[in-house]
Nucleic acid binder design. Structure first.
Length: 804
RNA sequence: GCUGGGAUGGCGAAAUUGGUAGACGCACUUGCCUUAGGAGCAAGCGGGGUGACCCAUGGAGGUUCAAGUCCUCUUCCCAGCACCA
């Protein structure tokens, strides 16, 4: 037999599959469908390393099995190609970012193609393609129409040296990563999306999703629903009121002071009553220099300043208590003000200790509880007021809020940690926000017929220096007539963040060429939702929240048929470098898939990456271990020699059907490592057989085909088949073929295995007991002892309990 | 600190969900074959002991005829969130 030459085989079949359009999805809705999707990549200039394809190999194997099981499979790939690196490349090389994007996508596609994926390339999409971003802009227009987009001055990280805005990840210790200048907060006019309006629905619908529990948990925490109350504290001798947010209104009687965030505007409004205003302003300035992380760092010494001359009145008991400005309270959470209950809150406790403020206990504290700590648990109310004392915290909360509500001093509210989404960037390489500013008409949407608003050609892609987008400098692009009144208008120069395209791209694969609609609703009804979505766990709270928000919005305006985009989610674990670090150019530890494919073959790479360990776990690459899967394929290749017409299938049927079950079940649950080990066990067994029937060997090939599509296709054709193995039917599992006539069972005495016997599978308990008790080894252990109990576990073991 | 996930041979790991711990693969050892081998084949491979046996799933207890798996306490590692009122 000829040698297994992966180079010849892989190239040949890839060309053949492509030519035949073997993996093209059809819109034939009479067949059950399976929409399998990878989180699409950002085509970076560095190319793929060996870790990138891991998730793609998984979806590839999964979708191939689904196809063989009779599903109409949609598996396509695209490029999330807007974003900073392409823009920076453009600035540096003075070329259009498109040049970098085209170069990188071509390279990525080449690298992917040699691995032999079953992508339907007819459906390839690119977020930077005007035909695509037309719809990204269209969604924004719809959100604008529905009042979900609003303008707001939001601070950006501004580097005064580079004259540019920076993302959080470009900061190091509050300094610009590139020039080390301390970064300032600069308010910019921004577009913000009201994602918080969908917070409750996103929370509720989480339950029904077949997602990893950890991802659901992080989304829950990210949305961060907390039920509490807003309570009004009047200011003495003033018409002003401080409204605080609290989740513990039950502790209201323990409030001994009130704290405002230093940036809270109320401070300015109270200025005339504050006798030490200059100190307060100095503190505010000081607090500005600290990042939120610094301000909120664990165990940090509390700072703050008292607003001299200001007293707040506790609406529950009319007690007058002091007011402070302190940076442990954040301006952008709750109302930017808290009532401090030092006896029952950690932060208030340490602040009160430092500033020598009274600590009043209003929840009964267990005796064993240390005296030098606040008691933050729920408990029984005490020291409050007659009708409240003795109640449980949980009940007291609604009682007290109800009472105050009646007086107009409190109301129950639900707060979210989730913030509205700052949706604009002051950059060139993003989708232009399709709005026009008109002095007369205000903000006017670009008419749908005029979409897409194309990115103009510019001289320089560098930021404008004012913080505005480079687009602001292109007069002929900016100045357009107002669509409403025809007067002078100016285009919005902010662009969208990279998330915009990735928040809905999965819908476009369904109907990539549609120029009349984002997606045809009938096709969408058939293909949605995505049945299996695979990507890194790092997208748990950003991409996956944004996409769910977009999808729910599209559902509300009737574009899609279902409320959720991704029915099932699997996380891919990272592949680390052999040294245990992340693969990176910086460490020089990058393994390139092209090299591995060249040396060992795509099938070996695929098999190895799936065999390395549990799919969602991170593992280190091992150059040494990859030969295992290669040897395995060689053995499968050689096994072809055993195929004979005179073979007795019965001798191998049990092994075969065990594998059919295990491989199918494991691919379904993403247990690829054990699926492959089951295939190895099968090959080990088949090698022991004298000869193999063609059918047995073909079944092995079909089971292996999802992982190793090229070698199996080659061997399949060698056997005389003329159609592709990837369109063959997945074998059916026949339980009766796995039934064995004899089984080995273990014999334990007092919990220790002492012997084992082979019995007929259908032997009854009494027969087994008598055989077991007669065994010399067992007699040795039971002699002279009283047999207390004999437990027979069918098909497994016999356990004998003896005692004196 | 909170939440989630982990800890099993020299290494990656498996274990039917309470039933013979270490499947499968890598590395390693021995032998065969070969002019040669980063090839192939055969056997071995958790630790201790000549052996009968004993010990072993981060550690300490417990439940059970039986625990990697369940319970209590504890140590360490990874990821995410973090003074959220």
């Amino acid at each position: 037999m000829r040698k297994y030459d992966h180079k010849e085989i892989e190239k040949k079949w890839q060309t053949e599959w492509e030519a035949k359009g073997l993996y093209c999805a059809s819109d034939d809705s009479s067949k059950p469908k399976s929409y399998v999707l990878d989180m699409f990549p950002y085509p970076s200039g560095e190319g793929l390393h060996v870790g990138h394809p891991k998730g793609y190999i998984a979806t590839d194997a999964y979708s191939r099995m689904k196809r063989m099981q009779g599903f109409n499979v949609l598996h396509a790939m695209g490029w999330d190609a807007f974003g900073l690196p392409a823009e920076q490349y453009a600035i540096k090389n003075k070329v259009h970012p498109r040049v970098a994007v085209d170069k990188n996508t071509t390279r990525f596609k080449e690298q992917l193609s040699i691995i032999g994926f079953d992508y339907d390339w007819k459906r390839e999409i690119n977020t930077t393609d005007p035909e695509f971003y037309k719809w990204t802009q269209w969604i924004f227009l719809k959100m604008f129409e529905k009042g979900l987009a609003y303008e707001s001055y939001e601070p950006i990280n501004w580097c005064p040296t580079c004259q540019t805005g920076l993302a959080n990840e470009d900061l190091e210790d509050g300094k610009c990563e590139r020039c080390d200048t301390p970064v300032e907060k600069k308010p910019m006019r921004q577009w913000v999306l009201r994602i918080t309006q969908y917070a409750d629905r996103m929370l509720e619908d989480l339950d029904a999703l077949n997602w990893p529990a950890s991802i659901k948990e992080s989304q829950k925490n990210w949305i961060g629903r907390s039920e509490g109350a807003e309570i009004d504290f009047k200011i003495e001798n003033s018409d002003k009121t401080i409204t605080v947010f609290t989740t513990r209104p039950d502790t209201l009687f323990g409030a001994t002071y009130v704290v405002l965030a230093p940036e809270n505007k109320l401070i300015d409004e109270l200025a005339s009553s504050i006798s030490n205003m200059s100190d307060v302003l100095a503190y505010r300035e000081d607090a500005k220099s600290r990042t939120e992380i610094e301000r909120t760092a664990e165990g940090k010494e509390k700072t703050g300043v008292k607003l001299e001359g200001v007293l707040a009145i506790n609406p529950a008991n009319d007690e007058k208590i002091p007011v402070f400005a302190a940076d442990y309270v954040l301006g952008n959470y709750g109302t930017g003000a808290v009532m401090a209950v030092p006896a029952h809150d950690e932060r208030d406790w340490s602040f009160a200790k430092k500033f020598n403020l009274p600590i009043k206990q209003v929840i009964e504290t267990p005796e064993f509880f240390p005296k030098d700590k606040p008691y933050t648990e729920d408990g029984i109310i005490t020291n409050s007021i007659v009708w409240l004392d003795g109640l449980l915290s949980v009940d007291a909360r609604s009682e007290i809020v109800g009472e105050l509500e009646y007086k107009g001093a409190a109301k129950e509210v639900v707060r979210y940690r989730l913030k509205d989404w700052v949706f604009s960037r002051q950059r060139y390489w993003g989708e232009p926000i399709p709005l026009i500013h008109c002095d007369k008409c205000g903000v006017v949407p670009v008419p749908e017929a005029d979409l897409p608003v194309m990115l103009p050609q510019v001289e320089s892609y560098a930021p404008s220096g004012t913080g505005e987008s480079p687009l602001a400098n292109i007069a002929e692009w900016v100045n357009v007539p107002c669509p409403k009144c025809g007067g002078a208008g100016k285009r919005e120069t902010n662009t969208m963040p990279q998330w915009a395209g990735s928040s809905w791209y999965y819908l476009r694969f369904i109907d990539p060429k549609n120029s009349d609609a984002l997606v045809d609703k009938t096709k969408e009804k058939y293909w949605s939702p995505v049945d299996m979505y695979v990507g890194g766990a790092e997208h748990a709270t950003r991409h996956l929240i944004y996409a769910r928000f977009y999808h729910k919005f599209l559902y509300d305006i009737g574009v899609v048929n279902y409320e959720e985009p991704f029915a099932r989610l699997q996380n891919v674990g990272l592949i680390m470098a052999e040294d245990g670090r992340k693969m990176s150019k910086r460490w020089g530890n990058v393994v390139n898939p092209d090299d591995v494919v060249g040396e060992h073959g795509a099938d070996t790479l695929r098999l190895y990456e799936m065999f390395m360990g549990p799919f969602n776990q991170s593992v280190a690459w091992s150059t040494q271990s990859i030969v295992g899967p290669r040897r395995f394929l060689e053995r499968v290749w050689k096994l072809a020699e055993k195929v004979s017409e005179s073979a007795n299938e019965k001798t191998t049927d049990a092994a075969l059907h065990k594998a059919i079950k295990k491989v199918g079940d494991d691919i379904e649950t993403f247990g690829f490592n054990t699926a492959i080990s089951a295939l190895m066990i099968l090959v080990n067994d088949l090698e022991k057989a004298e000869s193999l029937s063609k059918h047995t060997y073909e079944t092995l090939l079909v089971l292996l085909a999802p992982f190793a599509p090229h070698i199996t296709e080659e061997l399949w054709h060698e056997l005389g088949n003329t159609t592709s193995i990837h369109l063959a039917s997945w074998p059916a599992y026949d339980a009766s073929k796995c039934v064995e006539s004899e089984i080995t069972i273990a014999i334990q005495v007092n919990g220790k295995v002492r012997d084992e016997i082979v019995v007929a599978a259908d032997a009854d308990e009494e027969a087994i007991k008598s055989i077991v008790l007669a065994r010399p080894t067992i007699v040795k252990w039971t002699e002279g002892e009283e047999i207390k109990k004999i437990i027979v576990v069918k098909g497994k073991l016999v356990s004998i309990v003896v005692g004196e």
